[in-house]
Amino acid sequence: MFLTILHFELKYWLKNWSFYIYLSVFFVMALLSMAGAAGAFGEGTASTDHIANSPLSIYNFTKFFNKFLLFLLPAIVGSTIYKDFKSNFNNILFTYPFSKTNYLFAKFLSSFIIVSIITIFVELGLFLGTKIPTANGAQLLPFDALPYLQTYFIFLIPNLLLFGTVVFVTVLISRNIYVGFISVILLWLLSEIVLRIAGIESLTSFLLEPFGNNATQSITRHWTLSEQNTLPLVLQPIVYYNRLVWLFASIIIFTIGYRWFSFSQNLLH
């Protein structure tokens, strides 16, 4: 049953034009951003002393796109669960012989796979942006896969998992897609508040800022320009602790939604 639902939901998205629009928009934005930084559109568009594809630069690009990717979550993760309630199909589906575990995990995983695929196209766009023929070779380092992999697996995916879980659970409980949007904004605000209260150089903010950026930038902030252009992304243990804290938070949030949800719920009339 898990695979049946997973397969159905994946097919649903792969046949849906909005998936291809999201994917193209992120791909093109990423490609143009990188190409522009590498001087592909002429001298005026970029500061020539910055290396466009240095590990830190790739990190900064993905940090930027991460914020926009968050707004895909209600549209994809939220709507995958919401469409059952919106269409009223749940009145039929919830009397079918599949378990809550299969249902919730398949719904979440299918939508998260879709988000992960779109996210790959951000990295792909950044990479192909360096390959534009008019790019200035002096502003580019030779290709290195590591920063792309690091930003994808250590930052983008865990961050989307956290926010995706929050959206999934709030839509599941509220049966309202807009609450999903609001939850993204609230969590984002929360992270800003943490930074303001704890201060950017405190251990608390290193651990509790949900994107893991503050912990990372505690090092890179002090780099000179030539270090920014050349050094690999140094990830101190605190970055991994931060990721673990929020991975754990994602699991807890999902568990709350899982425990709360039941196919047998009251009809109020």
Binding site: S87, N88, F89, I92, T95
Partner: peptide, 16 residues
């Protein structure tokens, strides 16, 4: 029971 149940709810819809 669900394995041997057929249910038509009063109010239902389907995926568009």
């Amino acid at each position: 029971l669900r394995k041997t149940l057929g249910y038509l709810p009063q109010d239902f819809g389907v995926y568009p």
